[in-house]
């Protein structure tokens, strides 16, 4: 049983639980006995069904990734990710401070791109 209990099956099982609950919600929304809930209930069902579909897409992604190499490697240039995050944060503060911060953000993002890709073009000796 342990071998058959894969990552994909975990997400699928969880999606199935949600699908059952969403189906029951649909029944309640459509039921004349419990009064339904009009547009709000129908909208709630649509949101829940969409979310459940997303869970099944996650299951599909986990299944599709089953043959990916499982080796571990250190991130080669974590500084680039940090610069990118700084760029986005600076751009974000521009909403409060002013649009000129976008220039600073662009510089940070550009530096991140260079920092990430330059060593790939010219690997260190």
């Amino acid at each position: 049983m342990e071998r058959r209990f894969s990552g994909t099956s975990v997400v699928l099982i969880w999606g199935a639980f949600n699908a059952v609950l969403a189906a029951v919600l649909a029944g309640f929304v459509a039921s004349a006995t419990v009064g339904g809930a009009g547009p709000a209930g129908a909208l709630g069902f649509v949101i829940y069904a969409a979310s459940t579909t997303l869970v099944f897409l996650v299951a599909l992604a986990v299944w599709a990734g089953r043959r990916r190499r499982r080796g571990l490697r250190e991130p080669p240039r974590p500084g680039a990710a940090l610069l990118l995050a700084a760029g986005v944060a600076i751009a974000w503060t521009g909403l409060a401070i002013g649009a000129w911060t976008l220039y600073l953000a662009a510089a940070a993002v550009l530096a991140a791109v260079v920092f990430e890709f330059y060593p790939r073009i010219r690997p260190p000796e």
Binding site: F17, V24, F28, V34, Y48
Partner: peptide
């Protein structure tokens, strides 16, 4: 189950399927 209980925050709104 916790994904299916959000409507209890809107019980008093009269817009939800309270039974469910």
């Amino acid at each position: 189950g916790s994904m299916a209980v959000w409507g209890h925050h809107l019980f008093a709104s009269g817009q939800e399927v309270n039974d469910y």
